[in-house]
Design a protein around this nucleic acid. Structure first.
Lengths: 196, 196
DNA sequence: GTATCAACAGACCGACAGTCGGTTTGTCAA
DNA sequence: TTGACAAACCGACTGTCGGTCTGTTGATAC
């Protein structure tokens, strides 16, 4: 039961890789299953054997994108102990991540519409939002923000940083915009978290 | 040339009204043109005579939703002169607006995906974002935020308040969540805009 | 060897957005 | 009054797309 399992895994990996490219270039709606099948040289039957439908394939793509972004965040915050500093590093890593068109199209644009806001938020909760809340709880313990407002600030921060990331992504001079945004994000955090 | 023009306008108005209801209830993807035609008792030809396609019909719906939200904002800020206070009143009016499922589904969930982020942001720029920037410019003139950061803060504020609005909209106890959010938004503005 | 089952193949189906050649109806100039 | 014109409207038709269904293949377990 090894050659079979490996073969199935390889097919799934290949489909996700191909679909990631097409979803990024043409968006979810602009990408037909037909196009994925052709580009991946896989039959309909094979695809529908592994994924329940187009949205399930999209969810699989989304997962790999999330994983990549998370890994970047882990690297960026490695060795930082102060929660506010960790938050700053994580936000700046996130802004850097969205330089990747895959992240912009799949994670920020298509995901909310394909999954629906509720399911999208739940997925985000398990990923980014969860980490932000954990960090903010430590910041709140220092008295910089009220404990009952942790969730509130976590949401505002996530939404705000997403927005900034999209702004940076759109800028003509990407490098300059990213540098400016990183600085502005630092100031924003200072204001949001209040005096140390 | 009056009966004809009136009739056309009436058809458009009727289509937009019916489509608004269906888009709100089932989302953009979940609403077929067929369903709109049946519910509105209008022929395919008539619809495609007035609107280039499904997305054009959606854009028309979106326009009317924007208009309603804007009108609420105008009412809420009438008589307020201080820019920070106006901002606070406008944000709270916006949070109230999203109690309306139409605003949530059409404006916050479907619009970014249907129009694409770029066109959606441009539409928002002409509407809400423009007003926020104008108000923030006056706040910046008072020295509470740096002038070059006006655009940045405008985006963060809009995104943050949108997020809060969605949170409120999802809450079981809507009234309590709205009241809490209104207060939290006030605190958020105090922090963002800095000391007076 | 053969039973079993995951993996794969591809013909097929229903639904859907959009098109197109027509028909109706209000307007206005002659 | 009438005839030309154009906007409004009609509905059969088309191509595409997501998804289903009935197989076939080949690795594995016994």
């Amino acid at each position: 039961m090894n050659k079979k399992i490996d073969r199935g895994q390889a097919t799934r990996d290949h489909l996700v890789a191909v679909a990631t490219g097409l979803f990024t270039e043409h968006g979810y709606d602009g990408t037909s299953i037909e196009a994925v099948l052709k580009a991946a040289d896989v039959s309909r039957g094979a695809l529908y054997h592994h994924y329940a439908g187009k949205d399930a394939l999209f969810a699989a793509v989304l997962d790999t994108v999330y994983e990549r972004v998370e890994a970047d965040g882990v690297v960026a915050t490695r060795g930082v102990t102060d929660p506010a500093e960790t938050l700053r590093a994580a936000c700046q890593a996130w802004i850097r991540s969205t330089g990747d068109p895959v992240v912009r199209q799949v994670l920020l644009i298509d995901a909310p519409a394909v999954l629906g806001w509720q399911r999208w938020r739940e997925a985000d909760e398990r990923r980014t939002l969860g980490s932000i809340k954990a960090l903010l709880r430590r910041v709140a313990a220092d008295g910089r923000i009220p404990v009952p407002r942790v969730d509130f600030y976590a949401h505002v921060l996530l939404a705000g940083v997403n927005e900034i990331a999209m702004l940076v992504a759109r800028a003509e001079d990407h490098a300059a915009a990213a540098a400016d945004a990183a600085e502005a994000t630092g100031e924003l955090l200072d204001r949001l978290l209040g005096p140390q």
